[in-house]
Amino acid sequence: MPLPYSETVMEHFRHPRNVGRIEDADAKSIEGSPACGDMVAVYLKVDPEDLRLTDVKFESYGCASNIATGSIITELAKGKTLEEAKAITWKQASEALGGLPPIKTHCSVLAVDGLRAAIQNYEERHGLVKERVPTTVEVVRKRLKHVMNPLVGLDLVRTKVVKDIEVSDGTVRVVLDLPSDHQFAANIREEIMEKIEPLWDVDKVVVEFTE
């Protein structure tokens, strides 16, 4: 059957590993939303002695690459320490799956973000978090490196789509070198909002396009 996905992706899509909830989870996270089309919930059991993940489970509302990445990420994370699991990248997950189509980066990054958010949730609950850093232009730029240009599968910063970033009084303004009627304009805008809005000291995000 001619499909855009690798055999491994299809195998994980058909038979996802570690699916479901952990009722007495030590930490959990929900990334994405029904509105954005993909959503992942990650549940953790952590050994408090050596901070090792004894169990990882996930649930997915999303497309095939979202389900497959959720599945592989739980396999990769299980048995690792929090620090090790935090270091798992989208690239590693993608490689373990035999590659993912560039246009599907968003849906799969979500699962990696979900794992990290769940670990952060554990750290916050157990007083393991370092001090919160204020949002600066550099912090925004770093986050935008996780927003993909779906056409090429590379991030917005690297493909020089981000023209300008301003941060003042809780308002973040991102100017893109992209026309507002670009094929992916609405999608990219949504992705940027999703990445910047959750920052603790940000009240408002403005995305501007150039004509």
Partner: peptide, 21 residues
């Protein structure tokens, strides 16, 4: 679904009849 569309946008028709994403 947005995931299936070439522009990654949800159907403008379903949104147009007042449906959510």
């Amino acid at each position: 679904s947005a995931c299936f569309s070439r522009s990654l946008e949800a159907s403008h028709v379903i949104l147009g009849i007042g449906g959510n994403h």
